[in-house]
Design a protein around this nucleic acid. Sequence first.
DNA 1: CTAATTTATGAAATGGATTCCATAGCAAGC
DNA 2: GCTTGCTATGGAATCCATTTCATAAATTAG
Lengths: 325, 325
Amino acid sequence: MANIKEIARMAGVSVTTVSRVLNNHPYVSEVKRTAVLNTIEKLNYTRNMNAVHLITGRTQAIAVIIPNINLFYFSVIIEGLAQEALLAQYRLILCQTDYRHEEELKVLEMLRNKEIDGVVIVSTRMSSEVIEEYTAYGPIVICQDRGERRFSSVYIEHYSAFRSGLQYLSDKGYQQIGYCEGRQHGSSSSIRQIAFSDFLAATGQPFHEEWMIHDCMNEEDGGRVLHELLKMKKRPNALIITGDHVAAGLIIEAWKNGIRIPEDLAVIGFDDQPIGRSLGLTTIDNQLPEMGATAFRIIYDKIQNNDGHPVHRKLEYRIIERSTV
Amino acid sequence: MANIKEIARMAGVSVTTVSRVLNNHPYVSEVKRTAVLNTIEKLNYTRNMNAVHLITGRTQAIAVIIPNINLFYFSVIIEGLAQEALLAQYRLILCQTDYRHEEELKVLEMLRNKEIDGVVIVSTRMSSEVIEEYTAYGPIVICQDRGERRFSSVYIEHYSAFRSGLQYLSDKGYQQIGYCEGRQHGSSSSIRQIAFSDFLAATGQPFHEEWMIHDCMNEEDGGRVLHELLKMKKRPNALIITGDHVAAGLIIEAWKNGIRIPEDLAVIGFDDQPIGRSLGLTTIDNQLPEMGATAFRIIYDKIQNNDGHPVHRKLEYRIIERSTV
DNA sequence: CTAATTTATGAAATGGATTCCATAGCAAGC
DNA sequence: GCTTGCTATGGAATCCATTTCATAAATTAG
């Protein structure tokens, strides 16, 4: 396959001139420019981008650390991110890590290796210390609400969002509130757990261990939750559920079992997913696509300006009132 | 930042020896190996992968052309693909193209540029001719059922799958069958449209233009479809719907409007999505994760064996009987 | 004890572009 | 007429690791 040297030889110019043409640099006469262009055409030449990456030290690619793509929460973030990346002509390297530490580390190593220009961490179990180590090698943005200021982040305040969901239920008169969450030990889960018990304490309600239900990831889990509720002696009259998919599964199962919503059981979800819209689910919108887009913009900015200072962007949540509360 | 030369100098060996250590090649004495390893540690050295990519001509990365990540159909394929890629230690470059021709082409150009070792095309509007041109530069696999044999593919026979769905409805006694599809001009849509009219012709049923409903992508579209049906003078008593999400939206809206399923309206979906499981939706499973995984395996195989011959893998669909038919 | 392997090591070529630096022609300014 | 500045052009260094080839020492085979 042809290279720049051969083009230069055939067009009767120096490699420098070919490079100038390739990169639209000034100071090339029209005659030589067309000569080069013709030769490129004739030899069906393209740049070997690996050589470009080597010499420039940039790859126009960023990696995304994500446990699993096929979860609405994540795929929406990615979608927003991908859109921005496309606009900026950046490549997106998708690293589905399933929270495995070695895999997550490997991605950060890519930054050190110069394979990528930056990293967006959508969700991880890595400690802040580990991540911080790698900030020396390039920009890193995390989409989690750690109290952390050592590296850049985009986040919604889970504590506050969750609390306002609880407050909303409370204002509507629901006093027995249960909580369904995703991964029990996720970083945002623990924040919400605190928000939950703080709220109970503040409003003088007792804490029922069994009203806090873990590992609800999809519609089927939501259905399972309903049956767990039905088995309880004392049942909550409202549920706050992280993830509209889960809420949807629960609502459907409720319909099947003659449980009226919201009369027998009020439900508020998170994330404003399409299925929730169909069901008239009241939910808290977390602006997920915006989250991905913002994460990319931060990274991009840092790459352009070679700026190492951490940046933090808080996104606003909002309650979308529909008919399940 | 340190490079291999510096390591060599400090460890008192040649660069060749350092490279040998780095790549676990034989014929390095234990003494020198540890000297090199220590120096690497001391200087906090890592390879510049761009140099590796340049000299080896491989990047251990493949690109995926996909219109949109945030569609269940696509994200499930990607998930299967990503899992296999992880196992093989391959990077996945996600290219959300939104069917834009320039973007799709750009990805194929990456293959020519040697930025990637192969391409998986999940869905595209590019012509087979354009794609074929690029097979010269590396392995390409397409996840569509074109009648095309010039480049590799993984596919389910949409014609046959769709027809067996219709047959299933027909066997259950439904004679007025309507059809909801996604993009009207998608490659699989046109195959299904033919299957649909072939089936009507074969069973001597008339073709109702209005029973063929286009552009159904999500739950809300499904809801909209129900209302369209309600407005019709003569209604179908069964629907075949490409995509369980759409079917779900329709079913939910049917419940709200007192339409009994399947008594008033039978529904069969496609893709076996979680929401369908909750609703008891009868559906045709298209083995999407397997599709992604297989696509990767084909590419991987071709990269390893430098094999340019097109390979074709047909995946089997199956009907999952639940309670909406 | 010699011939054939095997082990160990390094010099140099290779992959393919970008960019700094040097040089030269030519026009404008004073 | 002389300096300054702009346009054009190319040589050579640079980015960094892999791999081929050559050579030498140490074993093993016969």
